[in-house]
């Protein structure tokens, strides 16, 4: 390790991996907060971190017969813009694809579906219902 740290390139990589691991943990922590928040409001959680080879969705929840596919975005500061702004069209497409494959697997393709975003700031949480529509590429 000592020797390796002398090599600047490797050192940078190691540092970034630590940061990544930190971000991952932070993300997991935010998702857990979001799940708790949803459950408190009467949602039933049907799945977490559902992924296929190309797509993923953070939380699948249900209330009043409507399925919500929820993307959780957290920020420690506003320096990089609002959390919800990070849900780009590409991300939306991935979520929608994940939703379709989940619905297909569960044989629930006729259900009414919504795409939500939960934003988490330090000490604050915001639930945007129906945050976006299925992108053209998926529909």
């Amino acid at each position: 390790m000592e020797a390796l740290q002398d090599e600047p390139r490797v050192a940078r990589k190691a540092a970034s991996m630590t940061a990544k691991r930190g971000a991952y943990a932070f993300g997991r922590y935010a998702e857990t907060q979001a799940v708790a928040w949803l459950e408190k409001r009467g949602y039933t959680i049907l799945g977490r971190n559902y992924r296929t080879r190309t797509s993923e969705v953070d939380i699948i929840a249900r209330m009043d017969g409507i399925l919500a596919f929820v993307e959780v975005k957290a920020r420690t500061s506003a320096a990089y813009g609002l959390p919800c702004e990070a849900v780009t069209l590409r991300k939306q497409t991935r979520i929608a694809q994940a939703a379709q494959s989940w619905l297909y697997e569960q044989d629930l393709s006729d259900s009414y579906v919504r795409f939500d975003v939960i934003e988490i700031y330090p000490g604050r949480i915001r639930h945007i219902r129906n945050a976006f529509e299925t992108p053209e590429a998926v529909a």
């Binding site: 939703a99 379709q100 393709s109 006729d110 259900s111 919504r114 129906n130 299925t134 529909a139």
Partner: peptide
């Protein structure tokens, strides 16, 4: 109006 991923066509 039908179920499925939300979409307006």
């Amino acid at each position: 109006f039908s179920g499925g991923v939300p979409y307006f066509g």
